[in-house]
Nucleic acid binder design. Structure first.
Length: 417
RNA sequence: GGCCCAUUCGUCUAGUGGCCUAGGACACCGCCCUCUCACGGCGGCGGCACGGGUUCGAAUCCCGUAUGGGCCUCCA
């Protein structure tokens, strides 16, 4: 994987990195990370660090040290000099250009697209070394592939037209080109390249939104790759086990945020209660919530079936950790008497636990001759400030008897107190 | 403009000449389950860009057109 350090790692590039990683891990090979920083003007200071953080969070570990393209400046200069001596390159206004062949075709068997051919007379003489001595991408990149023993180059389709140039350079130095696999781009819903206005595009943004790394990985893998005609949910290990280059499709894929949400929910629900609680605690801590950890852990099981992203937790279960806004407590018509009755009923419940609470409230509904659905709605609103919440009885248990009674009486206008 | 790449339900895809009256998943709609919301179950809607070939037979092979995209920088 060879990103340029010009900013945050875009999710499209992350998918390319993922294909590289899955392929390397599947084959028992190495996944290498190289920073293409030959264009020092555009380099962004923190980008190199952010790229690594992003890959690590997603679970993509690389082999060996991160390498930097500019570190090969001397080696590149030497090769360029030799090419000039051999007549395969020439000076042009201080720069060195490579002499591309004039006739015939340059072709390769792309692992994703099959055979691709370019007429050589369309290949311009590319600059190898700039007049200030720095190598260009189209020179340094193929040379590093050679020096690092890169066997497979899996990259975006925007590099297709660079490939014949790089192949000619590699052959000119007497080396064999690696195998190339050009994967398509990732698009937004409007068919344009995925960008900010479509939603989250950097790994960081997905992390802060509360996505689970293995779920995002699963989703990304399915963007342009499939295992068979029915398998959708796969763990990182399963992806590694099943991945192959020949099942990558060449056409561009549109990023579907709704499917990602669904897939994330599936992964989250499949977690053991302990794993789920651990992840939830970690997420909330990272996002700056100082909520009581033991209560978060007790709340975890009652939200696991309900939300599809950790980012929804504060809205969905925040009522357990902070006072609810009185404005949000608007009882439906005829709700107040029910809340008052519930208050009386719950005062007597001991222990104040879900099964006992349930028995009491169902008994109440029966006595009032109201359906449970109708009876519980005002109680839910009074206690949680919302018509939508985790299971009512479990929620009340976690809220505690005192707080529950306090909220019910506040909602009923204090009459119950 | 030149060169190159792509084109199956709204979306992700299965499909490599007969197994396809095109399968699965997300989304959407309906029903069931149900304390809300989810989950789950059942059902539905919906597609081979178009035109020519090749073949007994084409989503699958070939050609053309259209549409989308990439590159054409001393960017990567």
């Amino acid at each position: 994987m060879a990103p340029s350090p010009t900013g945050f790692l875009h999710i499209g590039n992350v998918r390319t990195a993922l294909f590289n990683w899955l392929f390397a891990r599947h084959e028992g090979g190495e996944f290498r990370l190289r920073i293409e920083n030959t264009d020092t003007n555009r380099e962004v200071e923190e980008a190199t660090q952010q790229i690594q953080d992003s890959l690590r969070w997603l679970g993509l570990d690389w082999d060996g040290d991160v390498t930097f393209q500019l570190d090969r400046l001397q080696d590149c200069a030497e090769i360029a000099r030799r090419l000039v001596e051999e007549g395969r390159a020439y000076e042009d206004e201080g720069a060195i250009r490579f002499r591309m062949p004039d006739d015939g075709v340059t072709a390769w068997d792309d692992a994703v697209r099959g055979r691709v051919e370019f007429p050589n007379d369309k290949l311009e003489d590319v600059v190898l070394v700039r007049s200030d001595g720095r190598p260009t991408y189209n020179f340094a990149s193929p040379m590093e592939d050679v020096w690092d023993g890169i066997t497979h180059v899996i990259r975006g389709e925007d590099h297709i037209s660079n490939t014949p140039k790089q192949i000619n350079i590699i052959r000119a130095v007497g080396a064999e080109p690696p195998l190339y696999a050009h994967v398509s781009h990732v698009l937004g819903a409007d068919g344009k390249s995925l960008s900010k206005r479509h939603g989250s595009v950097t790994v960081d943004e997905f992390r802060h939104a509360g996505y689970h790394a293995p779920a995002l990985m699963n989703f990304l893998a399915l963007l342009g790759w499939s295992y068979d005609d029915k398998t959708t949910i796969m763990s990182p290990d399963e992806l590694i086990e099943r991945f192959s280059l020949d099942r990558i499709v060449p056409s561009p894929a549109t990023f579907d945020y709704e499917k990602l949400d669904w897939l994330n929910g599936m992964h989250l629900r499949a977690l053991s209660p302990d794993e789920y609680a651990d992840e939830l605690v970690k997420f909330l801590r990272d996002e700056g919530y100082d909520w009581d950890e033991s209560l978060v852990r007790r709340a975890a099981p009652i939200v696991q079936e309900k939300i599809e992203r950790f980012g929804q937790f504060p809205d969905f279960a925040g009522f357990l950790f902070r006072q609810i806004d009185p404005e949000s407590v608007t009882l439906p018509a005829g709700g107040a008497p029910v809340v008052t009755a519930a208050h009386e009923e719950l005062e007597r419940v001991e222990p104040f636990a879900a099964p006992e609470i349930e028995a009491a409230l169902r008994g109440l509904a029966e006595r009032l001759e109201v359906s449970p659905r109708k009876a519980f709605e005002p109680i839910r609103i009074a206690a949680t400030g919302s018509k939508v919440s985790p299971g009512l009885f479990e929620s009340l248990e976690l809220l505690g008897k005192d707080e529950t009674l306090r909220r019910l009486s506040a909602a009923a206008g204090g009459a119950a107190a």
